[in-house]
């Protein structure tokens, strides 16, 4: 549905997007992930024909963004970082204005305005001025605007920015509900959002593509070596000393490192890391039990997307959270 090849965007002094290539299949939700100023907004603006690329090729639904922009624009819905709303318009007036811009007319237009205001939960404020709405409502009006002409491709630039947690959940559900009929690209710096909504992730950093894969694969790939938490407790009068237990665990084949995480006379918790591609859980359990201790708990800790992200981009997500509007300017 979307193909990007060798996309590059240079500004006077900086390179915002540097030789990015990726593909998005029909019906997928793709998370566009990257720290502040990574080039997310620029890439989205190129896909929506707002900015021309300096080099490379981007096609949406088979149409080139440079050569057939009208065809591309007909097929995309776009929600920029700040919802593009006119404060002096009423919600329904605004939606029908956008609908007309996108080529709807007559009863079809009225029906779509009703449908999207219902779907984005703005029907109750449809006769209010947009300027009087709260940020959350304005965001949803922006989303309604993006889907009014039922586009094949939806491009959402930080759709949940500035919403409260309840609204964030509602927006996520809404976006998930839209998948299937629509191909969706959404940019965000909120990692759990990607884990929860997206099937595929494209991570970019400093304008370069760092990784593109499914959320599941990415977790597996970054993990490679597994980390196991082991809780050991003494049984009966068997001798129980942390150093002894630790040495015992270290001797298990395939273990690279053992860290003591928590200790008391009654129990000890260790974090055990395996060597790459080694399966150690069975041997660990056997080692503990055969030494005469109780194995209270044993589980692997999956690497969160957050850790993967940090690993791949080498940046702080806390800094990315302070993203300012108009990062590409």
């Amino acid at each position: 549905m979307i193909t990007v090849e060798g996309l590059t965007k240079r500004y006077a002094r900086t390179v915002a997007v540097d030789n990015i290539s990726f593909q998005v299949q029909k019906g997928q939700i793709v998370g566009f992930l990257g720290p502040n100023g990574a080039g997310k907004t620029t890439t989205m603006r190129i896909l929506t024909c707002f900015l021309p690329p300096s080099e490379g090729k981007a096609t949406v639904a088979g149409f080139d963004v440079l050569e057939q922009p009208m065809e591309v624009k007909r097929r995309i819905g776009y929600l920029p970082e700040t919802p593009p709303v006119y404060p002096e318009m009423e919600v329904s007036e605004y939606l029908s204005f956008v609908g007309k811009l996108k080529g709807l007319s007559g009863p079809n237009l009225a029906r779509r305005v009703d449908e999207v205001s219902e779907r984005c939960a703005v029907a109750d404020v449809r006769h209010k001025l947009i300027g009087k709405l709260s940020k959350g409502y304005r965001q949803r009006v922006g989303l309604a605007q993006a889907i009014i002409h039922n586009p094949d491709v939806l491009i959402l630039d930080e759709p949940t920015a500035g919403l409260d947690p309840k609204q964030i959940n509602e927006t996520r559900d809404l976006i998930k509900g839209l998948a299937g009929d629509h191909t969706i690209i959404l940019s965000t710096h909120i990692l759990p959002e990607v884990e929860q909504t997206c099937e595929q992730v494209i991570i970019i950093s400093k304008g370069r593509l760092v990784a593109t894969d499914s959320v599941h694969n990415l977790q597996n790939r970054a993990r490679g070596a597994e980390t196991v938490l082991v809780e050991v407790a003494p049984r009966d009068s068997a001798p129980f000393e942390q150093t002894v237990v630790q040495r015992k665990l270290e001797q298990v084949a395939g273990v690279s490192r053992v860290l003591l995480r928590d200790a008391s006379p009654a129990r000890a918790v260790f974090e055990v890391e395996s060597l790459k591609d080694k399966f150690i859980r069975g041997d660990l359990a056997r080692a503990v039990v055969e030494s005469g201790w109780n194995l209270n708990e044993l589980h692997t800790t999956a690497m969160s997307l957050e850790e993967i992200f940090l690993q791949l981009t080498g940046s702080e997500p806390a800094a990315a959270a302070a993203e300012t509007p108009g990062e590409a300017q």
Binding site: F50, K73, I76, Y78, P80, P84, V85, V98, Q145
Partner: peptide
């Protein structure tokens, strides 16, 4: 809002 106009057909 110029983004809306510029990305509409």
């Amino acid at each position: 809002t110029i983004e809306l106009l510029a990305t509409s057909p």
